[in-house]
């Protein structure tokens, strides 16, 4: 099963490192990353495989969102099927 993690906010040192650390701790493999920095705004989208996730999905989601709040970033974690369903015919 795949999930999309989006991170939006002010660019700062170590965003990818911190997000990746959480993912690696929970045995999540990163499949793809795109990122862009437009003036100060940082936007990163990660496609990850959550099949091997070692905690409940909602625990991961809460952990990422809370970390985002602490760094002044908006982090969303959603099942990839949401985007597939909505944007592909």
């Amino acid at each position: 099963m795949k999930a999309v993690i989006s991170v939006i906010g002010k660019d700062t040192v170590g965003i990818i490192a911190r997000v990746s650390e959480v993912l690696s701790r929970h045995s999540i493999n990163i499949l793809d990353i795109t990122q862009s920095v437009l003036s100060d705004l940082f936007a990163m989208i990660m496609l990850v495989d959550i099949t091997t996730l070692d905690v409940d999905y909602t625990v991961l989601k809460d952990e990422l969102e809370q970390m985002g709040e602490g760094m002044g970033l908006e982090i969303h974690c959603m099942h990839a099927s949401v985007f597939d369903t909505m944007h592909k015919i």
Binding site: I45, H76, M78, F83, M86, H87
Partner: peptide, 16 residues
């Protein structure tokens, strides 16, 4: 990979 714009659009729809 899903289009970045599509992803941001969906998130915007939910949050805003």
């Amino acid at each position: 990979m899903i289009n970045t714009r599509d992803i941001l659009e969906t998130i915007h729809m939910v949050t805003e």
